[in-house]
Structures are given as C-alpha cells and as structure tokens.
C-alpha cells in the first residue's frame, strides 16, 4: 500500500465513520440521558453550514468576506419576525428567509465586488455592521435584547421540529445537501470560472467570461446558504439577536474555514466542529479558554494553513486547478 492510498483509506474511514457517528448520535444521547450533546452537535452542524458557505467564496473565489455572519442574522430574523407576527408555516418562512438573504447578498455583492483586496474585506465588514445596527434599532423586534421565538417552524405535520431529534436530522440533511450542491457547483464550468478568476482574473476575462457576474452569483449563493443556517439557528435557540451578526461572529466563521482547511468544503465542517468543541472543552476547564485559543489560531495560520482536513491529506492548495480530490464517499 502506498502512502497515498493509505491516506485515501484513512480519509474514507474518517468521513464515513464521522457520518455514521452523526447518524447514531441522537439515540446515543437519549440513551445516556444527555440531551445537551444533541443541542451542542446541532449547533456545530449549523455553524458547519455557515462555514461551508463561506468557503465557497473564500476558499474557491478568494473573496475574503469579513461580514458573512450578516446572513446568519438575516435568516434568523426572517424566522423571528415572521414568528412574531404569528407566521410559523415553513412554506412562508423558508422562502422569505432565502429570498431575503439572497437579496441582501446581491446588494452587498454588487457594491463590494467593485473593490478588491483589503478594501473588499473592509466593505463587507461595513455592510455587516450596518445590518448589526439595524438589528439593534428594530425596537419592536427586541432591539439589542433580541427576540424570543415562541414556536419553531411549522412543517404542517410532515416534520415535527418541536422535537430536537427531528431538528437535528433536518440540519444534518441540509448540511449534506449543501455539501453535495457545493461540490457539483465547484466541479462545474461555473466553478471553473470562479476558481480561474481567483488565480488570474484578467485571463478569464480575456477568455470572454464576465467574471464579475460569475463572482456575484457565487457570492449570492454563499449568502443564501448562510441565510438557511440562520433559519436553523433561530429554530435551535428559539431566539434571534443582533449578536448573531456581530463582527466577531464573522471572524469566527473565517476561523472555522481556515482551521478546517479552506477550499475543500468538507474542511470547514471539521473546522466548525473543532472550534466549537475546543470552546466547549476548554471552557469547561478554564474560563480563560480564549487565552489558549488565540495563540492556537496564530500557530495554525503560521504553520498549518492546510487545516485539519489537510492533515488527512485531502485538502489541496486551493489555488490548484481541478476539483477537490475524489470527494467524500457520498459525493
């Protein structure tokens, strides 16, 4: 067995094993009478969705969005505001949330994509701050205090989200669906243009691709996916608050992407799990867990840019051409 093939086997084991564990988690948590871990992993999965969506533009398109948490807020507020007015039906909440986050992403993208480099980072941050302050000033929807949501999304009896287990499987299904979708997208001609524009925009333009339009579409898709993560987050916590849009939250999403390995889509899932787990484990030992997390982060940036997924030998240097390696077994 060569080293490469051993790696492939290892990776397959980790991915399939991880998926199997995720599938059996709810009954295991119930058996152990520890519903807390179900909530915790649901939270991880939701942030995995958000991180995955950010990777789509950050890892493949080199669009360093420092305001990605804004869509988390848009999705969550769509649920919160509709629920406040007594609208809990999924067939209203979900489309509204999706359209709202797509529209917001389109607006932000239209302006931001005119800039590049550090200016792009700053302008996405500025837009996220605007939405954050908008959230604070929505007095009837709780303003700074946030808004308690009385009931989870109502799927008309088909899916009963009141059960944490059902919510968990829904979140898992959305994550896997987005992962598949993301991989298809990256492997497609569209994805090729996005990746091409990252390494050499002028060449792609010369080849006749309207790169800005392609990048805008990618930006909107990523924002919308993150909006869905917001919908799920609001359902998990029964609460929405401007804090979901705080700039440190955007920073955390970026950390998840890098920690897991950017430009791999699967990596950020690992990143989300790792960061939240680290937070959970460290914070149970010391309240000063950020004192440890901060330097860990610096070390990762300096020495382990390929992230956790890279350790499994799977993440490619994102600049490399071609679709990410063979992909997960369910891909």
């Amino acid at each position: 067995m060569t080293a490469t093939s051993r790696r492939i086997v290892l990776r397959a084991l980790v991915l399939w094993g991880g998926l199997a564990l995720l599938l059996v988690l709810p009954p295991a948590a119930a058996l152990a009478d520890q519903p807390f871990y179900l909530t915790l992993v649901t939270r991880m999965l939701i942030f995995a969705i958000a991180a995955l969506s950010l990777d789509l533009i950050l890892g493949y398109g080199a669009m360093v969005s420092f305001g990605h948490a804004a869509y988390l807020g848009v999705g969550a507020y769509a649920v919160g505001i509709l629920a406040y007015h007594g609208v809990n039906a999924a067939w209203i909440q979900w489309p509204v949330a999706i359209v709202a986050s797509a529209l917001v992403a389109a607006l932000i993208g239209l302006v931001s994509l005119r800039t590049s480099g550090v200016y792009f980072i700053m302008i996405t941050l500025a837009f996220a701050q605007m939405l954050y302050f908008l959230g604070i000033s929505l007095k009837i929807y709780g303003g700074d205090d946030g808004l308690t949501i009385n009931a989870r999304t109502d799927f008309g009896g088909v899916i009963d989200l009141a059960s944490n287990v059902v919510l968990y499987y829904l979140v898992l299904a959305v994550l896997l669906g987005f992962l598949l979708l993301g991989q298809r997208l990256i492997a497609s001609r569209f994805g090729m243009v996005i990746r091409g524009a990252k390494s050499n925009e002028r060449r792609m333009r010369a080849l006749g691709f309207p790169t800005v339009r392609y990048r805008l579409v990618a930006f909107v898709i990523a924002g919308t996916m993150c909006g869905v993560a917001g919908v799920l987050l609001a359902n998990l916590t029964n609460f929405t608050s401007p804090a979901y849009m705080h700039w440190t939250r955007s920073g955390e999403l970026m950390v998840m992407v890098i920690l897991g390995g950017m430009g791999s889509l699967i990596g950020p899932i690992f990143g989300a799990f790792a960061l939240l787990a680290l937070e959970e484990v460290l914070s149970s030992y010391t309240q000063h867990w950020q004192f440890i997390l901060g330097p860990v982060l610096i070390l990762i940036v300096l020495f382990a840019k390929r992230g956790i997924y890279g350790l499994l030998g799977a993440a490619r240097e994102s600049a490399a051409a071609g679709p990410p390696a063979a992909g997960p077994p369910h891909g």
């Binding site: 991880g18 564990l21 871990y37 992993v41």
Partner: peptide, 20 residues
C-alpha cells in the same frame, strides 16, 4: 470530528454514570 464525537460519547457515558 471523529475524535471529538468519541470524546463526547465518552463524556456522555460518564455523565450517565455520575447521574446514576
């Protein structure tokens, strides 16, 4: 992820043992 889940499961089992 795997590693964490294992430790989470272990923690869960431990929690159950303590509760009992």
């Amino acid at each position: 992820m795997t590693k964490f889940l294992v430790s989470a499961a272990a923690a869960a089992a431990l929690g159950a043992a303590v509760a009992a």
